[in-house]
């Protein structure tokens, strides 16, 4: 077994649920999401030796594949990229600032022990995976997932505290 295959299998196991969920949230069709993921991961396999940050690369490739998908589906639309924009970005109310702070906290890798922590958090908090599902995807026990998630949440709360947010409940 080559190192390339080994690295790919392990990265695939960790990132596939994440990328699939992200793609699905854009296309809303399981079959389309599968096709797009196939394209992303074939390219990922071919280049895995040269990729430094797997998550970053995969999200970049995902954006590219989604653009291709939308262009095929909606040849009449000129600005496909605009279509791809997260609709919630235009959401204006009191949560806009909180959104910025939260995004910063979630994107800051110092709040996570390692990459698997970040994947776990995204699955549970962003894509709403149950602890059981997240455990089954990542090869953890449910107890481990619960423990890890609690630790991550604790770190994020402490990060937000440093930013001046003393009580999370006040933000709700």
């Amino acid at each position: 077994m080559s190192w390339k295959k080994r690295d790919f299998a392990e990265a695939y196991n960790d990132y596939y649920p994440l990328i699939f969920s992200a793609v699905f949230s854009k296309v809303s069709r399981v079959e389309d999401a599968e096709d797009i993921c196939q394209e992303i991961f074939i390219k990922f396999y071919e280049k895995i030796d040269t990729i430094e940050n797997h998550r970053k690369w995969l999200y970049g490739a995902m954006k590219f594949e989604l653009l291709t998908y939308y262009r095929k589906k909606h040849p009449d639309v000129e600005d496909v990229e605009e279509m791809l924009q997260d609709a919630s970005l235009s959401y204006v109310n009191g949560f806009k600032d909180i959104r910025i702070i939260l995004t910063e906290a979630i994107e800051n890798m110092d709040n996570f022990e390692d990459e698997s922590d970040k994947i776990l958090f995204d699955l549970v908090a962003i894509f709403n995976f149950t602890y059981e599902e997240a455990a089954g995807q990542l090869g953890f026990s449910v107890r481990q997932v619960r423990y890890k998630y609690n630790k991550i949440a604790g770190r994020l709360v402490s990060y937000l505290g440093k930013k001046g947010i003393k009580s999370l409940e006040d933000l709700l």
Partner: peptide, 22 residues
């Protein structure tokens, strides 16, 4: 945990994937 999840939800940062898709 619950407050954080609620905040993420209210900030529209979540993209819930249905259980059957999971």
């Amino acid at each position: 945990n619950d407050i954080l999840r609620e905040l993420i939800k209210k900030s529209r940062l979540d993209k819930p994937v249905p259980a059957e898709v999971q």
